[in-house]
Every structure is written in C-alpha cells, then in structure tokens.
C-alpha cells in the first residue's frame, strides 16, 4: 500500500516538473515572438519592400536584402536538393544495407549537426579565395551544402515509408529499380519529399554564418551572382549591432520577415502532410 502511495507521489512530482519545464519553454518562445512581432510590425512599412538598405540616418528599406536572400536560398536549394534527393534515394533504394550506406549515413549525420560557420569557411577556401572576391554564387553553394544533408535525411526517411510490397509488385512485372523508383516510389512519397524541400528551405533561409564568408553583404542593389549580395541575415546582424535607431528598426523588420517566411513554410509543410498524407504514410 505504501509502495503504491509512493509511486503516486513520484508520479505527481514528475508530472508537475514536466509541466513547469514545458511552461518555461513556451514562455520563452512567446516572449521572443511577442518582442519580434511588436517591434517588427511597428517598423513595417511599404518602403521596406521598395527601397534599398539606407545609409545611417537616411530612410530606406530592405529590397536588396530580400531579393538577395530569395535568390541565394533558391539557388542553394537548386544545388542541394538534387544531390540530397539522389543520395537519399541511394540510401533508401539501392544501398539499403551496404557498408557504403552505413558510412554515408554516418557522415551525413555529422554534416547535419556540423556548425554552419565551418561550411562558410569551407566555401570561402574553395571559392572565395580562388575567385579573389566574395560572391552570391559562393553564398548559394554554402547554403546548398547546408541543405544537402537535410534533404538526404528526409528523402531516405520518406522513401522508407513506402511499403516494400509496392516495389516487389513493380519488380515482379519486370521493372528495373530506377523505373520502380520514378514511377512508383517517388509518386508515393511525393508529399513527404516536397515537405523535405520546404523544411530545407526553411533551414537555410535564416542561415547567417555561411554567408558571412561567402556572399558577405552589399549596401546596394546587385543582381550579379559574381558579386557580393545583400541578404536578410547579414543585414539584421549589421543593423542590429549598429547605434542607429533607423537601422535597428529595419533589423527588427528583417527578423520578422524571416520568421514569418519560415513559419509560413512550416505551415505549408504541415498542411501538405496532413492534407494528403491523411493516413500516416505516403504509401496509403
């Protein structure tokens, strides 16, 4: 009887502690969001989307930074997604249990959690030093390298959800693996794969460190990929650290825009998987 009583008390304590921990986490998140929303929306105006980043003391917007972030994120995905998709396909379809897959999986996990500044330095040495100057394309490559392991992981996970019986059915009709993958497996896992791409976009769109050594920043409008390009994370860093009130307000707006963008992507990714993947796995 006393054992039972003790267990009840322990349970109540554990339950209370986990509730408190959850409350702390949620409170922090709400505080961050609230600060961001109140400060960001306060400074949000039409000119943010129509004017370039200003010099200290003058009026301006974030157009060049928004453009730069969109371009480099898009290019980064174009570089990272195909490689990640194919590598994930190898892991899930061709080399499921091969020694090479085990190695690739391990390295991919390391890369997934590697500090992004390392990636920035790597691309700095690989491209920026050889080219002799910072450039948007180097920034895109750095973002691509960050997106790649995310894509590898989600692709493998999503393809593994497709029932093996479908692959067997296709193979039994005489299909080569690649035919099965493109006609059966990819379509069955389509929603999951799209979700993976969206999550990779969300991941890289807020990255600052890899751009620090590659795309750097640009005060002016630039659409030349071979030159330094403005981007939201770098502008936020530069403006937030400055002593100027105008710049600080623009930094809040920039932070708000990135947050809303990532939030928007997450919501889309969620609704894709819940709308179409209603029954849990993409093979249903």
């Amino acid at each position: 009887m006393s054992t039972l009583r003790r267990r009840r008390i322990v349970n109540v304590i554990a339950f209370s502690m986990s509730m408190v921990a959850t409350a702390i986490g949620l409170a922090l998140l709400c505080a961050i969001l609230w600060t961001l929303l109140s400060r960001g929306f306060g400074a949000l105006s039409f000119s943010v989307f129509t004017q370039m980043t200003p010099g200290p003391g003058s009026a301006g917007g974030l157009l060049n930074a928004i453009y730069g972030s969109l371009v480099m994120t898009a290019l980064g995905i174009l570089i990272g997604a195909p490689i990640g998709l194919l590598a994930g396909t190898y892991l899930a379809e061709y080399g499921r249990n091969s020694p090479l897959s085990t190695v690739v999986r391990f390295i991919n996990d390391v890369q997934l959690s590697a500090p992004s500044i390392i990636v920035g330095l790597f691309v700095y040495m690989l491209m920026v030093m050889r080219m002799g100057h910072f450039s948007a394309i180097a920034g895109a490559v750095a973002l691509g390298i960050i997106a790649m392991p995310v894509m590898v992981r989600t692709t493998e996970d999503m393809l593994n959800l497709v029932p093996k019986s479908m692959r067997d059915g296709s193979a039994a009709l005489g299909a080569q693996p690649w035919y099965t993958i493109t006609r059966i497996v990819y379509p069955a896992a389509k929603n999951g794969l799209v979700t993976g791409v969206l999550l990779a976009v969300a991941r890289i769109s807020g990255e600052t460190a890899p751009l620090l050594f590659t795309a750097l920043n640009n005060q002016f409008w630039n659409s030349n990929l071979n030159k330094p390009m403005a981007n939201l994370p770098m502008v936020i860093f530069q403006f937030a650290m400055s002593p100027y009130g105008d710049w600080q307000r623009l930094a809040w707006v920039g932070a708000l825009l990135i947050t809303l963008f990532v939030l928007f992507l997450s919501i889309i990714a969620r609704s894709i998987s819940s709308l179409f993947g209603q029954h849990g796995n993409p093979g249903e």
Binding site: P163, S165, M166, D168, G169, S170, A171, A172, L173, G174, R183, I184, P187, A188, G283
Partner: peptide
C-alpha cells in the same frame, strides 16, 4: 519476370489510378 507474373499475399496496388495499375506492365 517479363514472362512470369506474380500476385502477392497482400494486395499491393500502386498509388495510381485503376487503369494505370493495369497498364503498368
């Protein structure tokens, strides 16, 4: 496998239309 068909224990239709399942082979 091109000459010998197979039907499995658990029905395994492809995630496509009825017609596309039949024409797959």
């Amino acid at each position: 496998r091109m000459r010998i068909g197979m039907v499995f224990q658990k029905a395994n239709p492809f995630p496509t239309s009825i017609a596309d399942n039949v024409t797959y082979g």
